[in-house]
Amino acid sequence: MANLIIFLVLLVLGYVFGQMAERRHFKSIIERERQYKHIMCFNERTLPPQTISPEVALVAGNVVISIDYFKRIVAGLNNIFGGRVAAYESLIERARREAILRMKAEAETLGGQSIFNVKLETASIYKGSGQQVGSVEVYAYGTTLIKRT
């Protein structure tokens, strides 16, 4: 019985705080995406032919986002019944966009105007069975082009 109460309390806490954090995070992501709109990202490996040898630098941004208890339970249920794991979709989306934003922020401090050859790496931080702390890391990196002055 005590375990059930702990479970329900964790579930409610996970839901309330998880949803709050997610809403706040999305709001900030959308805002900053507008702010860094002038730094464009491409996954092309070669530069446009007309580019006159710019200065280049490696820029990267990474983020680790943890799942909340509610999401983990819902995903656990998804594991039994199958289907889209909607609880994780928004999590991964947040991580991807945040990582790109941090990469763009670095590019801006270097005075870059665009980032080429953008790649995303992802890793899950997972303590395995038992005490599970599931987090996802997304690492974005690319080459920023800085106009020579």
């Binding site: 819902v74 249920l77 889209r84 909607a86 979709e89 928004s90 989306e93």
Partner: peptide
């Protein structure tokens, strides 16, 4: 990139199942 389902509604369905 995100499914438009309310998390609580999804949870209720899954838990009932």
């Amino acid at each position: 990139n995100v499914s438009e389902t309310h998390p609580l509604k999804e949870f209720a369905w899954l838990a009932a199942g």
